[in-house]
Structures are given as structure tokens and as C-alpha cells.
Simulated assay, not measured.
Amino acid sequence: MNPAVSNLVISLAVMQLARKIPFEDPEVLYYVRVGYVSMQILVLSVYYYISMTIKSKNDQTVLKYVEAPNPMSQEPGQLVNTTVRDYDLLETSKLLRSVYMGMAMMGFMHGYMKFTQPLFVQAIMAIKSLYDATPFKIHILGQKAEGDLKRPWKTAGGMFGAAGGPQTDNAAITEAEKRVGGTTSKKEE
């Protein structure tokens, strides 16, 4: 199932369950807060552990690909020449940033606007998003980096499955190298 669709289905089910929870009770609210904070600490700890695992493996295999072009611009994608270690660390740091952003938004929604139901929903969704994360599948669950897990990873599709991603075919890489080589020679002149 598409991750965006499964996220929607799970969040709707959890929201229905959250309607039955008496958030007005201070003791229940306390436990929901503790649960939310515990889930965020767990997710952050796992991502930091994944970062340490990536650094300890120190896989220096060269990874070449062409970034997906921005759909809002006419410019082609840029050539990226990196290592598996650096790529995995970059993707894990993106996941960490998304957790921090979610925590900041939840802090605003709960602390300032006094919404309580999203705390419960986000505690559950944090575990779901951790399980869906590609670095988790490779470095924690031990799945091989083949098929859908082959680097560079494709971005998750939206609601209708329009997944975009980097180009790894030789023609795209060669074309990007020519563009980079062409702009370099122009600058040298």
C-alpha cells in the first residue's frame, strides 16, 4: 500500500480512537503527554543510532545520480557524486529534521492553541513513520539495499502515487556530466 494512503487510513483510525479518550481528565492528559514525549525520544534515539551505525560501517562506495529536477523550474537536475555513507547520513539527517519540525509544530499546537488530540495521533504516527523510513529498514531491520531500497532512494509518492526520484541511468548521468563539463570549460575561458 502507498505510504501516503496508509498514513491517512491510520491517522483517521487513530483520530476516531482519540475521540473516545477523555482528554479533560488531567491524569489522562498527563499520560498522553508522557506517551508523546516518549515516542519522540524513541524515534530520535533510533535515528541517532542509525547515524552511528552508518558512520561505523563507513561504506565509501561511490554513488552517482542526477537529482530529480524541481517541477517548478525548467532547469535539469544536478549531478551528485557522493558515497553511500554520506548519502545515508544526509537522508537520516533529513528524517531527524522532520521529527524536530513535527515536535515544534506540536509544541505550538498543544502549548499555545491547547489542542490535545494531535498529541495522541502524532505519538502513533511517529512509530509508523519510523517503520516506513528506508534507513531504518536497511540499518536496523537488516534488509538488503535492493529493489525499492536501492540507493538513491525514490521519494515517497503523494496520495495518487506520483513518486519522483533521482535518475540513475547512464544516459542521464552522462548528460549531466556533459552539462557540468560544459559550464566548467566556459568559466575557464
Rank of each mutant, 00 (worst) to 15 (best):
V180Q: 06
D132I: 06
S11I: 04
V14R: 05
A156H: 14
T116P: 01
S6R: 00
L42C: 14
G157D: 05
K137M: 13
D88C: 11
S129T: 15
K94A: 06
A156V: 15
L8M: 07
V46S: 05
S93Y: 08
A18C: 07
A133Y: 04
G157R: 04
V66R: 06
L141I: 12
Y36H: 12
K57Q: 14
P71L: 13
Y36N: 11
P22Y: 03
I124V: 13
L17I: 10
N81E: 14
Q122G: 05
S11V: 01
G77C: 02
T168G: 07
M125I: 08
Y65D: 01
P135N: 08
K94D: 05
V28H: 03
V121I: 06
M101A: 09
F108V: 03
Q16V: 09
V37Q: 08
E175P: 03
M103K: 08
D86Q: 00
Y36R: 10
R85W: 05
N58F: 10
L17A: 12
K187P: 02
S51K: 01
I21H: 01
M39F: 13
V99H: 03
K128V: 15
K150P: 08
A104F: 04
L95I: 01
R33W: 12
Y100V: 01
G182P: 01
Y48L: 15
G181F: 06
S6V: 05
E177I: 01
G181C: 08
R33Y: 12
D25V: 07
S11A: 08
L149E: 11
F120S: 06
L44E: 12
P26K: 06
Q122T: 09
S93T: 02
V5S: 07
L12M: 02
N170F: 13
A126N: 00
A162M: 14
I127N: 06
I21M: 05
G157M: 08
G165I: 03
S98Q: 03
Q117F: 07
E189H: 11
K20Q: 11
L96G: 08
E75A: 13
I10Y: 08
D25P: 00
E27R: 05
G147F: 10
M106H: 02
R19E: 09
M1I: 00
G35L: 07
D132S: 11
R33A: 14
L63C: 12
N70M: 10
M159C: 11
S129M: 13
D25T: 05
S11F: 02
M106K: 07
R151G: 07
P69E: 15
K57W: 14
L44D: 12
Y31C: 02
S45A: 15
S11R: 00
K150H: 15
A145K: 10
T53F: 09
M109T: 02
T168Q: 00
S93P: 01
Y131H: 09
M72F: 15
V180W: 03
M101L: 06
L90M: 09
E91S: 05
G165L: 05
K128H: 12
Q74S: 15
E188R: 00
K94S: 08
